[in-house]
């Protein structure tokens, strides 16, 4: 393997104990994500999408099967994986700059280098001029951008995004989708995006994973072969979108 960032899920399952009884949330997830790929996951609420991301990021290591990153089993959080949560989870007591910088706190990068990386990533997400702002002074979209910058600042091989645009109005969302594409090409990072929005998945992803609930399984994986930039109004786009919606309805 030459470029790092390939993720291999083999028969991954997750069972919670709820009131002493087992509740299977994920079952038999087999999935391979190629380096540099943009993969989207769609599925009904409660089908285990966030749980899957939590397993991959390493917040929960009590699972069945194997999750391999570049061939090694994941046992805990690591800086080669980044995540952007649905709520931005910026620390309210840190400025934008400090919030992005905390992504580098655990690294031994020299201070000057850190400052440069922080500035670059603030530029990357288009927040220049807001370095000293506190989260309460940001709009929802700006806060999500800052969270994306924090997720990317230590140059992870793979970035997990858990419905990062879910809480935004549709105009801002469409705008940030283009930004995500730009960042993806610019940073050459593998992206794994969870979303409720089928159109968003079709617009962004190389492949879309459709999940079904109770217990959470993969129903189908659809490659999106449309050339970028994609046109949401094109008939081919609508056709793919319709196929996925049909899958979700079944």
């Amino acid at each position: 393997m030459t470029t790092p960032g390939s993720l291999d899920l083999r028969a991954v399952g997750k069972t919670y104990a709820v009131d002493g009884r087992p509740l299977t949330v994920l079952q038999d997830i087999d999935l391979r994500i190629e380096p540099g790929e943009f993969l989207a996951i769609v599925g009904a609420s409660g089908c285990g999408k966030s749980t899957l991301l939590r397993l991959i990021i390493g917040l929960d290591d009590g699972y069945d099967g194997d999750i391999l990153l570049d061939g090694h089993r994941i046992t805990g959080p690591g800086l080669e994986r980044g995540i952007v949560f649905q709520e931005h989870r910026l620390f309210p007591w840190l400025t934008v700059e400090e919030n992005v910088g905390i992504g580098l706190e655990a690294t031994s990068v020299p201070a000057a280098e850190k400052r440069r990386a922080i500035r670059e990533h603030i530029d990357l997400v288009g927040l220049s001029g807001f370095e000293k702002a506190y989260p309460y002074q940001l709009s929802g979209g700006m806060a999500q951008r800052a969270a994306i910058a924090r997720g990317l600042v230590n140059r992870p091989e793979i970035l997990l995004l858990d419905e990062p645009l879910g809480a935004l109005d549709s105009l801002t969302r469409v705008h940030l989708q283009d930004e995500l594409l730009r960042i993806w090409t610019q940073e050459n990072v593998t992206m794994l995006l969870v979303t409720h929005d089928v159109e968003e998945a079709v617009y962004l992803a190389d492949r879309v994973v459709v999940m079904e609930p109770r217990p959470g399984r993969i129903r189908r994986i659809l490659p999106i072969d449309l050339p970028r930039p994609r046109n949401r109004a094109a008939p081919a786009f609508a056709a793919v979108k319709e196929t996925i919606i049909q899958e979700l309805r079944r």
Partner: peptide
């Protein structure tokens, strides 16, 4: 409330 927060608190 966003689902992540709930999941996080459940694990708390």
């Amino acid at each position: 409330m966003p689902s992540d927060l709930i999941a996080a608190e459940r694990g708390a």
